[in-house]
Nucleic acid binder design. Structure first.
Lengths: 333, 333
DNA sequence: GTGAAAGCGCTAACAT
DNA sequence: ATGTTAGCGCTTTCAC
C-alpha cells in the first residue's frame, strides 16, 4: 500500500503552538527531563497536543543534536546463516532494546564495501562476525562508531570468547566420539568457502581433542550437499579406517547421512556422524542426528552485554562460560 | 575490539580549512553537484584533504537537511525464516543499492511495538511481510515514511502479487499430485501459529486446485517437528484414504517423512509428499523430497522495483509473472 | 515554571 | 568560481 503525499512534517513547533507553550516545554515534557517541574496541567496539554497531531520527533534531528546514535548495526554475513543466527538476532534486538539501543541488521552484499552503509546511518556500535578490514575500520571510526565487536577470529580478549566457542564445538564432537570408542575420526568440511571462518576453528577443536586424547589426526574431506559426492567421501573414509565423522554443521551431516545411505554404509554401525546446530531437520533425519548445539540466548545476551559495556562505559561482562555448547544425543552417534 | 575515545568528529569545516576553501566548495566537490564548475586543481585539493582527514559526512546532518532518508527498512518477522528469506534479503539489498537506497533489517521482537524503531531511524520506505496495524501505519506516516509494501495479505493491488504466489505454491503442489493420479490429498499444517499468514494462502491454493480438478477436500492435519506425532498424522491420513500430502514447507515435509518411516509407510508408494522451499536438507532426505521452490532473485528484484517506484515516482513494475514458482521433482512424489 | 537563543553538520539559494 | 547565509528539527544552557 504505497502511502502518498506526506503532508509536511509535524514538528515540535506545531505541538508547542497547539498546546500554547514553547518548544522548550514540549521538549521537557516529552523527554521527561529530570529536575524540570512542569505542572500537570501543562504537561497534559502538551501530551494531548502531541497525540492529537501524531507528533513523532525527528530521528535525524535528534541524532544530529545529541551527536550520539542509539543504533547498533549488525553486519549480516553474506553466507548462509542457519535458523539459529536469525533467532539470535531477535534475542540480541530485545536485549539491546532493554538498554535503549536499537538493533538494525545490514545485509552485506558480497561485492559492496561495508563503508557504503556509514553514508546512510551512523551506528553507535557495530557487531560483525568477521574482523573488518583496516580501511573499513578507519571509515567506521571516522563515521563516529564507538564500539565494534567481532565475533570470530579477533585476536583481542573479550571478543575472543566466541572464537573459543567454535573450537569447543569441535572438541565436543570429537570427545563424544572418542568416548564411544572411535579412534580414527573424519571431518566433513563444508563446500562453501565463505564459511571458512567457522569451519576452521571447529576443525581446530577436533584436531586439538584428537591430540589430547591420543587419537589419530582427523581425516578431512569436503562434502558438498550432493549425495553422490558424499557417498564417495564416505567410501574414502571407510577405506582410511575412519569409523566416525564430525561434520561442520547439520546440513553437511545430512549430506554425510545421505552419502552413507547411497554407499550402503550403516549409520552409526558403519559410520557414526555428529553434526552442529540442531536444525529442525536433524531430529527428523534417518537416523536422527546427534548434534552439538549452542545456547543462542546466552550468546545473544553476552553480545548485548559486550556492546552495552563498550557504549555505556560499564565493566565488560565475564567471559562466556563454556557450557554454552551442549551435545544433543540421538541415534547417529 | 572496543574502539575508544572518538577524537572529535571531522566535519566539512575541517576539510574546508585543510583545503583552503569554503564549506560550500567542499560540498560541491564531494557531492559532484552538477552545473558547478570547480577547477580540477581545487577539486583535487578538496578530495585530498578529505581523504587525508578521513572525512565522512554526517548521515544525521545530511538526513536532517535533505528531509529525506535513503534507508529502506525491512521488518524481519519474529517467526523462523528459512534460508530463502535471508538470501532474498541480500538480493534486495543489492537491488536497492543500485538505486541509491540502503536496506536495513529490523528484527522485531515479539512483544515490542514496531513504532519503537521510528525513534531511531526514519526510513524512506518500509517493507513488511504482514500488514501493519493501523496505529503503526499512522506512526509511520508521522515519522515521514513515504512508501510501505506489505508482502502478504494486503488487499491492495501491487502488493497482492506475493499473496498470489503463496496460493500458487499450494496449487502447484496439488496439481502435481493430481497429475500423478492422487485423488485424495492431505495438507500438513505447521505447528507454529506465527506462520499462519503463509500457511493459509498455501492451503487455500491447495483447496482451490482440488476444487478445480474435482478432487476431494484436502484433509488438514497439524504436524509438529516430532516423529511420533507425525506418525499419528500419517496413520490418520491413510485411514482417511489420503494417498499424498502437501506440506506447508520442507521442514514439515521432513516431519511427515519421519512420521511415515516410523509408521512403516513407504514414500511415495504408500504416501507421496511434496514440500516447499527446497532447503538443502530436502535433496538429502530419504527419500529425496519433491518440493516447490520460488524464484527468490525474481521476487527480490520485484520488491525492489516496487519500492523504488513508490519512492522515485516512477511507474510500478508489472505484476510478477507466475513462473516465480517452480516444482523440483524428486523421489518423494 | 517557561521562553529565547544558540548550535549540532550539512546543503542550496543567493551574493560576490 | 567561490564564499556568505539561512535553515532543516531538536535539545539545552541561560534568563526571566
Amino acid at each position: 500500500m504505497p502511502v502518498e503525499s506526506r503532508p509536511r512534517r509535524v514538528t515540535s513547533v506545531d505541538v508547542a503552538r497547539e498546546a500554547g507553550v514553547s518548544r522548550t516545554t514540549v521538549s521537557y515534557v516529552l523527554n521527561a527531563t529530570p529536575h524540570q517541574k512542569i505542572p500537570d496541567g501543562t504537561r497534559q496539554r502538551v501530551l494531548d497536543a502531541a497525540a492529537r497531531l501524531g507528533y513523532a520527533p525527528s530521528a535525524a534531528a535528534r541524532a544530529l543534536q545529541s551527536g550520539r546514535s542509539d543504533v547498533v548495526l549488525y553486519l549480516l554475513p553474506d553466507w548462509p546463516v542457519g535458523p539459529a543466527v536469525t533467532h539470535t538476532l531477535v534475542r540480541l534486538s530485545t536485549a539491546l532494546a532493554a538498554h535503549g539501543y536499537t538493533l538494525l541488521a545490514y545485509p552485506r552484499a558480497a561485492g559492496r564495501p561495508v563503508a557504503d552503509v556509514w553514508r546512510s546511518i551512523e551506528p553507535a556500535a557495530v557487531v560483525s562476525w568477521e574482523d573488518l578490514d583496516p580501511a573499513d575500520v578507519a571509515a567506521m571510526r571516522a563515521a563516529g562508531v564507538l564500539v565494534a565487536v567481532a565475533l570470530l577470529r579477533g585476536p583481542g580478549t573479550a571478543e575472543g570468547s566466541l572464537e573459543v566457542s567454535q573450537q569447543r564445538i569441535g572438541r565436543m564432537q570429537a570427545e563424544h566420539l572418542a568416548a564411544a570408542g572411535h579412534r580414527r575420526l573424519g571431518y566433513a568440511d563444508p563446500d562453501d568457502p565463505r564459511v571458512r571462518g567457522f569451519a576452521e576453528p571447529r576443525l581446530d577443536g577436533v584436531r586439538a581433542a584428537c591430540a589430547d586424547l591420543g587419537l589419530d589426526e582427523p581425516v578431512v574431506r569436503t562434502v558438498p550437499p550432493d549425495t553422490a559426492t558424499a557417498a564417495d567421501a564416505v567410501r574414502a573414509w571407510r577405506e582410511a579406517g575412519v569409523t566416525a565423522v564430525c561434520a561442520y554443521n547439520d546440513d553437511v551431516a545430512l549430506a554425510v547421512l545421505a552419502g552413507a545411505r547411497a554407499a550402503g554404509v550403516d549409520v552409526p554401525g558403519g559410520l557414526a556422524v555428529v553434526g552442529v546446530d540442531d536444525v529442525p531437520a536433524a531430529a527428523l533425519a534417518a537416523p536422527p542426528l546427534t548434534t552439538v548445539t549452542t545456547d543462542q540466548e546466552g550468546i545473544a545476551e553476552h553480545i548485548a552485554a559486550l556492546v552495552v559495556a563498550g557504549l555505556d562505559g560499564t565493566p565488560p561482562p565475564p567471559r562466556l562460560t563454556s557450557d554454552v555448547v551442549r551435545l544433543v544425543r540421538r541415534a547417529s552417534a
